[in-house]
């Protein structure tokens, strides 16, 4: 047992490689913030756009959303990184990863916001229109706030999932936590950097998971 601890929790190694992994940590954090803000913002805009019910827009949008929900994120990243250059568009690994994940989050967020919007009682629309608010005012002031509120628990979970996927960037050599850790591990032939990486992910995401539990319990109407 001691041997195992020595192997996986070799503090000297961890200390030695901490700066390297810290760089990765910062990069992971940056990617996460970018993906979340771009993804959720775009998703909300798309859901609003969909509310107008223009078939010429909604039909292709639905198709794209379905596509991004069905295809594994790693496949999307690989396509963005390895296939787009053939079309004359070369993305850096960082941009390819962030763009892919933001797009995927936008697709999920659009679905979640949209199902939030559609599950708001029809009476709310009627009440808004009956007091003279127009379609857009009713949507923005009455229906959307309630729809967003319904969407929050699902959205937090999905956001955490996709933020975790920033680790997929390591597959195209974005030097985020996981990539730094595997590099370090191959230099010293010791798994401790991987343990350190694991700890970093836990530090980054456990608070988010705990928060999502809280959100799930408290983000309800006071009935």
């Amino acid at each position: 047992m001691d041997q195992v601890l020595d192997l996986y929790f070799d503090f000297d190694t961890m200390q030695r490689f901490f700066p390297m992994l810290w760089e990765g940590f910062v990069l992971t954090l940056q990617m996460t913030l970018l993906v979340v803000s771009i993804g959720i913002g775009t998703g909300l805009l798309l859901a609003l756009l969909r509310a107008f019910g223009v078939r010429l827009i909604n039909w292709p949008m639905q198709f794209l959303v379905d596509f991004l929900r069905a295809v594994p994120p790693l496949v999307v990243i690989m396509c963005a990184y390895f296939a787009l250059p053939y079309a004359g568009l070369s993305l850096s690994p960082f941009v390819a990863t962030v763009a892919s994940l933001a797009l995927i989050l936008a697709a999920f967020a659009e679905e979640i916001f949209w199902s939030g919007i559609t599950s708001v009682n029809r009476g709310q629309w009627e009440a808004g229109r009956a007091t003279g608010l127009n379609f857009f005012q009713t949507l923005v002031h009455i229906v959307l706030p309630q729809g967003v509120r319904l969407a929050v628990p699902l959205l937090t979970n999905r956001t955490i999932e996709i933020s975790k996927s920033t680790s997929l960037g390591s597959a195209i050599s974005v030097s985020e936590i996981l990539n730094q850790a595997t590099n370090a591990q191959s230099i010293v032939a010791n798994p401790s950097p991987l343990t350190l990486a694991a700890l970093m992910y836990v530090v980054l995401f456990v608070p988010l998971v705990a928060m999502s539990r809280w959100v799930e319990r408290h983000y309800r109407w006071q009935h």
Binding site: G123, A130, I142
Partner: peptide, 14 residues
């Protein structure tokens, strides 16, 4: 509709 008030069976409060 500003000049026609409406009250609903299910209240439809926000």
């Amino acid at each position: 509709r500003r000049s026609i008030g409406m009250v609903f069976q299910q209240f439809n409060l926000y």
